[in-house]
C-alpha cells in the first residue's frame, strides 16, 4: 500500500526508537482535588503486541491515559515516550477518546476531519494537498467509511463518528496509540472496524494501549494487560497475568462470579 511506503520515508527514526520502550511511566500520581485517582504507578509498555488496561469503574484507567497525554495535571511522576518527554514526541502519539466532545454541527466533512490527522505533516498556512487528502481517504477505507467521506460530521451515527476519529488517529501515523474503550457501546460494523484496525496496527509493529472494561474478551483482542485499581495491581502477558487471583485483587471481590474463558 502507498500508505506504508510514505510511512517508511517519514519515520526515519524508527530503528532508534525501536530500542526504547514506547511508553515508560515512573511513579505516576494523579489527584482530582485532594483524593488520589492514581497512586505511584510504574509501567513500561511491552515491545510488541496490544495492551489492555483493565480495572473496575473509577479505578483510574482513563485518567492513566489522560495523565500520560498531559490532558490532566499530575502530582508527581515522569512519562516518557521512546525515552523523551511528550512535548518532543507529540506527533508519534495518537489518541482516540471514548466520545469526543466536539460540536457535531460544525461545518466540516468526514474527509476534512480525517485529514486533520495529517496536519502534523503540513506547515503553517499551507493548504491540505491532494497527497494528504488521498492518505486520509485510505484511512477512511480502513474503517469502512470511504463512501461517507463527503458527509457533514453530524449526519453520522454514533458508531460512524467513532470510526471517523479512529481514522483520524490512523492518518496521524503515530507510533503509539491510546484508545479509551474502543468497543464500548458500538454497533457491529464499528466493532469489526476496530478489530481490523487493531490487528493491522499490531502487524505494523505499533504500540497500542486500550482501556477495556470487558474481561471476557481481553484474551481475544489483546496479548498484554495492565491491571489498575488506584495502584498498579499487575502487568504482563495476558496468559500469565490475567489470573483469577489478580482479578480478585483488582476488583476487590466485586466480580467473584465472573468466569473467565479458559
Amino acid at each position: 500500500m502507498a500508505n506504508s511506503q510514505s510511512l517508511a520515508t517519514e519515520e526515519i527514526q524508527v530503528p532508534a526508537l525501536a530500542a526504547l520502550p514506547a511508553l515508560s511511566v515512573r511513579d505516576l500520581t494523579v489527584a482530582y482535588d485532594r483524593q488520589p485517582v492514581l497512586w505511584s504507578v510504574d509501567y513500561v509498555s511491552p515491545s510488541s503486541g496490544l495492551t489492555a488496561i483493565v480495572g473496575p469503574n473509577g479505578a483510574g484507567k482513563s485518567t492513566f491515559i489522560k495523565a500520560c497525554l498531559d490532558l490532566v495535571p499530575r502530582l508527581s511522576g515522569e512519562v516518557r515516550f521512546f525515552g523523551e518527554p511528550l512535548r518532543k514526541r507529540r506527533r508519534q502519539v495518537g489518541y482516540v477518546p471514548q466520545r469526543s466532545s466536539v460540536d457535531w454541527q460544525f461545518p466540516v466533512t468526514v474527509l476534512e476531519v480525517v485529514a486533520m490527522g495529517r496536519y502534523g505533516f503540513i506547515g503553517w498556512c499551507l493548504p491540505v494537498s491532494r497527497r494528504h487528502r488521498n492518505a486520509a481517504m485510505e484511512c477512511l477505507e480502513k474503517v469502512g467509511m470511504a463512501d461517507l467521506a463527503g458527509r457533514q460530521i453530524g449526519q453520522l451515527s454514533g458508531g460512524q463518528q467513532q470510526r471517523v476519529f479512529l481514522a483520524r488517529a490512523l492518518a496521524q501515523e503515530a507510533q503509539i496509540y491510546f484508545m479509551d474503550e474502543p468497543f464500548a457501546g458500538v454497533d457491529a460494523a464499528t466493532e469489526r472496524a476496530v478489530i481490523d484496525v487493531l490487528k493491522s496496527l499490531d502487524d505494523e509493529g505499533k504500540t497500542v494501549i486500550c482501556v477495556h472494561h470487558d474481561l471476557q474478551t481481553v484474551a481475544d483482542y489483546f496479548s498484554s494487560v495492565l491491571m489498575l485499581n488506584l495502584t498498579k495491581i499487575a502487568d504482563g502477558p495476558v496468559a500469565t497475568t490475567l489470573t483469577q487471583e489478580n482479578i480478585a485483587r483488582t476488583y476487590r471481590g466485586r466480580v467473584h462470579d465472573l468466569n473467565l474463558r479458559a
Binding site: 497525554l69 490532558l71 512535548r87 507529540r90 506527533r91 502519539v93 495518537g94 489518541y95 477518546p97 469526543s100 466536539v102 460540536d103 460544525f106 466540516v108 476534512e112 476531519v113 486533520m116 490527522g117 496536519y119 502534523g120 503540513i122 503553517w124 498556512c125 499551507l126 493548504p127 491540505v128 483520524r168 496521524q172
Partner: peptide
C-alpha cells in the same frame, strides 16, 4: 485566509490540535 487550516482545526477540536503539537 492564510490561517484557514489552523483556525478550522482549533475551532473544531482544540484538544486534538494540542495533541498534534500545534
Amino acid at each position: 485566509v492564510l490561517l484557514f487550516k489552523e483556525f478550522r482545526l482549533v475551532c473544531f477540536d482544540a484538544e486534538f490540535a494540542r495533541g498534534l503539537g500545534w
